[in-house]
């Protein structure tokens, strides 16, 4: 899975959490850029990503992802993206 495929998958997961099928995330998207993406939705999203990609983030990591790109890079670094969803 390459960067854009991961982004598409992340968009789908967040779209499900926020009930917005048109949602599209970019590498530089931050939480503040997406309406309704509060801490509650964020945790749901993270657990959704963990389930889909078969990974587990550290709590400290979850807290300090500055943007979507950081999540994508963390997934690639874990090689988890190879498994795909």
């Amino acid at each position: 899975m390459d960067e854009s495929a991961i982004l598409a998958e992340l968009s789908r997961i967040l779209g499900e959490v926020l009930d917005d099928a048109t949602l599209s995330l970019g590498m530089t998207t931050e939480r503040a850029d997406v309406p309704g993406w509060d801490s509650f939705a964020y945790i749901n999203f993270i657990v959704g990503v963990e389930t889909a990609f078969g990974v587990k983030f550290k709590v400290a990591e979850v807290e300090s992802f500055p943007d979507v790109g950081a999540i994508v890079r963390a997934l690639i670094a874990r090689g988890a993206a190879a498994k795909g969803a």
Binding site: E16, V17, D19, S39, Y42, E50, T51, V59, V62, E63
Partner: peptide
């Protein structure tokens, strides 16, 4: 960062691991 997220993350993961549905979505 130090109370809500760790607590919520742990609880949500446990629920997913048990195969139960979580919140969010339609």
């Amino acid at each position: 960062a130090y109370i809500y997220n760790p607590l919520s993350l742990t609880l949500t993961r446990k629920r997913v691991a048990r195969g139960k549905r979580v919140l969010g979505g339609r």
